[in-house]
Design a binder for these strands. Sequence first.
DNA 1: TACTATTTAATTTTT
DNA 2: TTAAATAGTA
Length: 718
Amino acid sequence: MDVSYIFEDLNEPQRDAVAAEPGPLLVLAGAGSGKTRVLTYRVAWLVQAQQCSPLSIMAVTFTNKAAREMRGRIEKLLGFPVGGMWMGTFHGLSHRMLRSHAQDAGLPATFEILDSDDQLRMIRRVLKELNLDEGYWPPRQIQWTINGHKEEGRRPHDLSDSHDPQVQVLHKIYSNYQALCQRFGLVDFAELLLRALELMQNNERIRNTYQDRFRHILVDEFQDTNSIQYRWLKLFADKHKNITVVGDDDQCVYSWRGAQVENLRKFEKDFPGAQTIRLEQNYRSTEIILNAANAVIDQNQGRFGKTLWTEGEKGEPIQLYAAFNEVDEARFVIDRIKSWVGQGNQRSSCAILYRSNAQSRVFEEVLLDVGMPYRVYGGLRFFERAEIKDALAYMRLISNPHSDAAFERVVNVPTRGIGNKTLDQIRARAREKQQSLCNAAVELLQSGLPPRATQSVQRFLQLMDDLRKSAEGHELAEIADLVINRSGLIEHYRKEKGERAEARVENLEELVSAARNFRHDEDDELDELSSFLAHAALEAGEGQAEEWEDCVQLMSLHSAKGLEFPLVFLTGMEEGLFPHQRSMEEPGRLEEERRLCYVGMTRAMQQLVMVYAEVRRLHGREHYTSPSRFLSEIPHEHIQEVRSPMISRAVVRRYDKSDSAGQSVNGIKLGSRVRHNKFGDGTVLNLEGRGESARVQVNFEDVGSKWLVLAYTSLHAI
DNA sequence: TACTATTTAATTTTT
DNA sequence: TTAAATAGTA
């Protein structure tokens, strides 16, 4: 077998990583240093040079997209398909295990996956059963708490007793929620991982089987793993210790979701003798961009430490534009794109990046205005859309009549006269007799409901019966078609007017195509319909139908991770927006913002343009802003300030560039310590306006954060 | 049940 | 400002 290509295509550290001896290996891969390349080549090397069977390899990613791409690249390298190799997301692989060992995992064979939306509904239901007020117990927060517990591997019974009544109630909600899920055979995202982990821990036979089978484990984006994922990996790798993790501590931007950069350090400790290889040669950006990004990220403490370098061109300086306001910002950016495109470049080679999604609006308005095609990433994905979830719920009821979540979702969608009162009766009956809503509804028909309700419920049950009968022996796509037509769903939206309704009809039609394109795996434990439903829950699909038109790309900095563009605009470079206000209170969060900035800057291949607005309208108020601290962390020689085309700009400009850290009023500036004669001591978080209307936000030690108008308050620096 | 008025809160989101 | 959730009304 000629494997020389493996060495020809790679630089030295890459080669070392790809051909490292078996054993624990940590690859610290800087942005654009070819980490996916290393991962795929290492798999190819294992198979071709080490004669490993693809069956003995597991590769784990965070997204389905990454898994698909990796599989494709590996197959291309090897020249043959590697179907037997386990390659997928933590959730996908866990799901696969649980399907194979449902009974051992304490789950019914027909268990269903709850996505976060379904989970929220479930929590609402628990709150209702416990007679708790949603205003006081926000479902989202509870969802966050429960998932947090699960991600740390804590079951309700693991929680220590608390004397705090608040905490007691939270525990109660968690344990009721869990009991309800167990009763209905429902598994949420975090549960997939926790169950799979517990299955391995508690069942020696299964543990041995998997530990023996997977002689090699490879992990992508390791810096984003949370506690449960780390424990999951550690257990899988426990026997052979052949685990390759690839990650970049400087690109950890999901710690708010439980990602623990510390896992990188932990890895070194838990796998003694682990080899560490750094990939620092960058193949993406110009030297100036890299130097600037290096300088910014260098401000963070406790890094593993990497310095990106390139053999490529020095490139153009980073351009910085101080826009008058957010509209000027958008005009400037789009003007620049126009001239870029005029030079023969593609629109799709430009990305407009921002910290928060709301910022896309102004850009969209201007793009629409000048008639330039664009694509916004983010927002609801295909399988998350309400109308699609409705249709899927019908399909779930066909597959499993006793799915309460599905029943609740569509029993009155479109409205068919089964209101809250009737539903409450059904729910009460179901709870009392410990049966599914469907069965409760059937029984209630006998024991007397008001005539109107009886008729409506009967009609619904009849509909489901018909659907179930008609579905038998039909193709998936036909079932989908049947469901959207006979349920009245599509008719319901056809009658509605407006663009939204039109889009919904289109989406429902698209669902039929999605069903047609779905390829059911022969040796799947599930029948085609159930398998499709699981697929829909685990892979939310694209945000928009694939647009082939050449489009400007708009997305949040988070969504940009992993992508690259010749021309990148980092917009909204203002204190309070980026770094975001809510991240400035804790130093840890600030460092994460800085990593996000690093991620954003390193997306750019040829030209990076940074923009901030001196005045920004936010939540209906105008704010005077100061330039982001990240801008001042970039060495001056790399920055070229772009002057406004309008002469008046010089007049409009109000601040001194050399003091870009921010304005100062009466010696009070951002971050300074102040004393108030009522509120005590605190730290200045924010400053806006000037003169009489100058206001400051102060985080007081005793009373928390407050906005004060300087003119009316006795505040002084200490 | 559907429509309208009012209130509320406003980062980021791989599964 | 705005979108979404809630409450109130026809």
